[in-house]
Write a protein that binds this DNA or RNA. Structure first.
Lengths: 218, 218
DNA sequence: TATCTGCCGATTGTCGACAATACACTAACA
DNA sequence: TGTTAGTGTATTGTCGACAATCGGCAGATA
């Protein structure tokens, strides 16, 4: 058994995280420290620490002496986040390209097939989880902690912000295909190609979500 | 006059920042909240907020319930930070390549000449400032806030950690030359070349500093 | 001697209260 | 009517105290 020793702060982070996933907190909403403290039955100190953490992840926007607000990203901000993610993960994959075994590649390939199935059967949450795992398996192979750290931060950010869209942007076969392209690139061992195709992967999704958001707000 | 309404937190950040630059705080040192609070005549709350900020910048390492320590980077960590910086700034420059006017390019070129002079006359602090300004002028041209934000964080981190080495790694003419390569690439308008040469720029410096650190510790 | 156990001091984690201030509202004034 | 100054309220900023717990040390034990 793993003994976990959580502070209030960590639990508050999870709480806010879940509120965002459930849609109980929406972009632009203000998070009032006192209100949340009372709601959770704790003091403001750990709330503030948790908010700090979320601010550094770009999930909450903080205006001094005014308040903490759920980040409200413009379409351009969305594209920019995805582009940056692509740049980071693209390089991470390139950096790690020699660390992929045949077994590892096969495993990634099987995941793409699994994604397609999950998408077909409407299991959106599992699909998103698997997608996250797929990408994490790739960028985590890089031994560059700095790079991996930034990538993870962006991963959390986009997960939270666009959770609800991710599973419905592409058809099941498109989802499989898009990820198979990455696996093929990794298999080829061509560093340039790997980097380029991961960049493109995120650029496409970024622009799709941004367009969706834009039309939604009209 | 610029009216600055600073909180204690910001001032504490500056204070720690300066201690690091002056070498009064060294990698591995523990920063005790209470001690610092007494020293500055304030309470622990703003100290903790400031530490949070520095933690998120990768400047301070935090071990729960143990303490806050000035980050102690291994040679590999150093190289990794510089590589990541190169990846980010490289893409930022590539992204911004059409935003450079002839005037802007000329200004960058003059800065490289100025760097050479400052290096020759031993004005190390001004040299480093100018170097920072040079690179900031490049990556800030990108309109990608996410990208620029990460780049700035890394910029602060490396500035703090390696301030003392930066001015003595290269000869004055090397310093000029290294930066002129970047200006030339920007002038050429070749996106691939710009990205590659900025990556290389940081990779070189990263490995140099890492080697210096390694031999130093023996 | 080597290892384990329990205590002690130092440091972080959390608390509730008060101070400072941004924003909205009101009222005076031109 | 539009503008400005003043006021009140809600929210963040800061405080000092107490609680929890980590790491080291001394002593017990084999």
């Amino acid at each position: 058994m793993i003994i976990s020793k959580t502070t209030y702060e960590e639990q508050v982070i999870s709480f806010i995280y879940n509120c965002l996933l459930k849609g109980e907190l929406k972009p632009g909403d203000q998070i009032k420290e006192n209100r949340l403290a009372i709601k959770l039955g704790i003091s403001r100190a750990p709330i503030r620490e948790a908010l700090r953490e979320l601010i550094s992840n770009g999930i909450i926007e903080y205006r001094p002496r005014v308040g903490n607000f759920v980040m409200n990203l413009s379409p351009k901000d969305i594209v920019d986040s995805y582009i940056t993610r692509g740049v980071l993960e693209g390089y991470a994959a390139r950096d790690a390209i020699d660390n992929f075994s045949v077994y590892g590649i096969n495993r990634l390939y099987k995941m793409t097939e699994n994604m397609e199935e999950l998408a077909s059967s409407g299991k959106h949450i599992k699909l998103i989880d698997l997608g996250d795992k797929f990408h994490e398996m790739i960028f985590s192979r890089s031994g560059n902690k700095q790079l991996v750290g930034f990538t993870k931060k962006l991963s959390i950010k986009s997960h939270l912000m666009f959770f609800k869209y991710l599973a419905m942007l592409y058809s099941p076969s498109e989802i499989g295909e898009r990820h198979k392209i990455i696996v093929d690139a990794l298999k080829s061992g061509n560093a340039e190609q790997v980097e380029a195709c991961i960049r493109n992967h995120y650029y496409e999704t970024g622009t799709k979500i941004a367009n969706l958001k834009e039309t939604e707000s009209k």
